[in-house]
Amino acid sequence: MQLRSRVKNLMIMGCVLALSSCAAPGHKDQGQDGAYGAGDNSVQSSGVGQRSHFGDSAAGPNQSLAKRTYYFDYDKSEIHAQDKAAISGNADYLMSHPHAKVILEGHTDPRGSREYNVALGERRANAVAEFMKAKGVNPEQIRVVSYGAQRLAAPGRTEHDYQLDRRVVLVYVR
């Protein structure tokens, strides 16, 4: 019970910090693109199974572990100094939990070319992945996927929206 409430707290923190909708425990994280694997007339969607957020106090400061969205500058893929502690915290968690796996989702703001943005999003996610591997994380625990500008965090077209869009989101998978 105590662990459960701790998990819940971590999840709430994660949700707030990620500035994105989070699913309830035991439910799929639907992301911005909706229900994966939902019935569909023309797409035989196979899905990748349940996703959930792990929380574990043994992996270091809760705060850094819960911070799972990392922001980037325009057309850049360099990790901000203030995000390194959080990425390290999650790297430590992965190293102490060799069965845990993460997806690193790369995103960009909506400006510019869609395909260039997909490549840029991948560079950002790769930057986080390389940082974690350098810490000693097994590459098998990390999968990178780039959505470019296909899943914006903020729908508006202000510089503030763009700052929220340019991100890598770390998602724990089971």
């Binding site: 229900a35 994966y36 569909d40 007339n41």
Partner: peptide, 12 residues
């Protein structure tokens, strides 16, 4: 006319 309807992104 729809060519593909999906719950996930389509591009290019």
């Amino acid at each position: 006319r729809p060519i593909l309807t999906s719950s996930a992104s389509i591009m290019s």
